[in-house]
Design a protein around this nucleic acid. Structure first.
Lengths: 201, 201
DNA sequence: CGATAACTGAAATGCACGTTCCAGTTGATT
DNA sequence: AATCAACTGGAACGTGCATTTCAGTTATCG
């Protein structure tokens, strides 16, 4: 039994598929972009119908585009876990996550009602990696143990998202978030130290 | 000179205006609500045309509804500033702000593209009050001085918003945010204390 | 080369909205 | 009660969008 009715795939179709994906990816990183099929098509130099058909629908196209952006981030999170201590991994990765969100705010602004299975799967992977980092950092006594790791992970994700939403985007704000978040995640101070007058802390 | 061509206002029009406003307000606090004119109208027991006309447009209706919800929050922020210390005010108000956002996430989810002048004005007032709290708390040595107050205010606002977006809404998450945020906002520890082993802190 | 099936994209379609129209209804004023 | 303008709401309309259609184009294979 040969491969049954595998339809021929023409070279130009493959090329256009890539053009559509590139255009969508580019628009995700542009601040005020509309993310309509027509805009994507214009950016790709194609007709709207072609763009939609290349992936079977707008949702699938954007799912592919977001996944392509997210995939290296997830990979880096896993690499960090393997290469270095959880504490260092957490610190490095937090910076990266915030930078990523700040660069692609359109991802979280305009993709609310869409069905993005691949993206959701990647996000789950990402959450898993961050939870591993937190578990490790807690074992090292660097992250507080009075808050559920899953809650901390959610908190981190939402925080990165919050930075991305800020108007206008600002590196200063991102740094402040990171500072406050990391300081807030330290183990709680003992009452004795906490109540020292500021001058002696 | 009598009031020139002041059109008569019928009692049922006033009543319907209130019904529309009540329905819109109620929908803002419901989790998955659609916030379309038709849904609001059905909830109010009115026709869609009537609902829209009562305020001159959907935007104006929602502006009024959000403002009605936001107004007591702003008022309470001002009262707190007058009644107690900035530090206490900040602590109490943060709780309230998070609770408010968690109860009305629809406000920030579906109102993105709308023009809401009254709401924007109230939000500005709110930001002003929070900045006063932070200024005072900094003078009292309770909030770190190495981050711009305006940045801290933005951070607080975005954080509250982030809690509201979490799925599913959870009191535990809100508490965790508050804890981490407040600890993170404390004055930075001196290097000497920060580098103590955990057991001695 | 043809021949054929894959492919394209402008236009048509379908859908979900907010808004406006207008014939009928109702509250107010006499 | 009689009058009349304010009011109502079902239906029509306009808009912005994703998707589908289809006549024409073009890559691919013999």
């Amino acid at each position: 039994m040969s491969t049954p009715t595998e339809p021929r795939r023409r070279a130009d179709a493959v090329r256009n598929r890539r053009l559509a994906l590139d255009a969508a990816t580019a628009l995700l990183t542009e601040p005020g972009a509309s993310l309509t099929v027509e805009v994507i098509a214009k950016k790709a130099g194609l007709g709207a119908a072609t763009v939609v058909r290349a992936f079977g629908g707008k949702d699938a196209l954007l799912d592919a585009a977001v996944s392509r952006l997210l995939e290296p981030v997830v990979q880096h999170a896993r690499d960090l876990l393997a290469e270095t201590t959880p504490t260092r991994a957490l610190r490095i990765f937090l910076r990266e996550l915030i930078a990523f969100q700040a660069a692609h705010h359109a991802i979280n602004d305009q993709l609310g009602g869409l069905d993005l299975p691949a993206t959701t799967a990647l996000r789950t992977d990402l959450v898993g990696a961050v939870e591993e980092m937190i578990d490790g950092a807690r074992r090292d006594g660097v992250v507080r143990t009075d808050i559920d790791p899953a809650i901390i992970t959610t908190l981190i994700g939402q925080t990165a998202l919050a930075v991305a939403r800020a108007q206008p985007p600002s590196q200063e704000l991102a740094d402040a978030y990171l500072t406050v978040l990391l300081d807030g995640l330290r183990p709680a101070l003992s009452a004795a130290v906490r109540d020292l007058p500021p001058s002696e802390r």
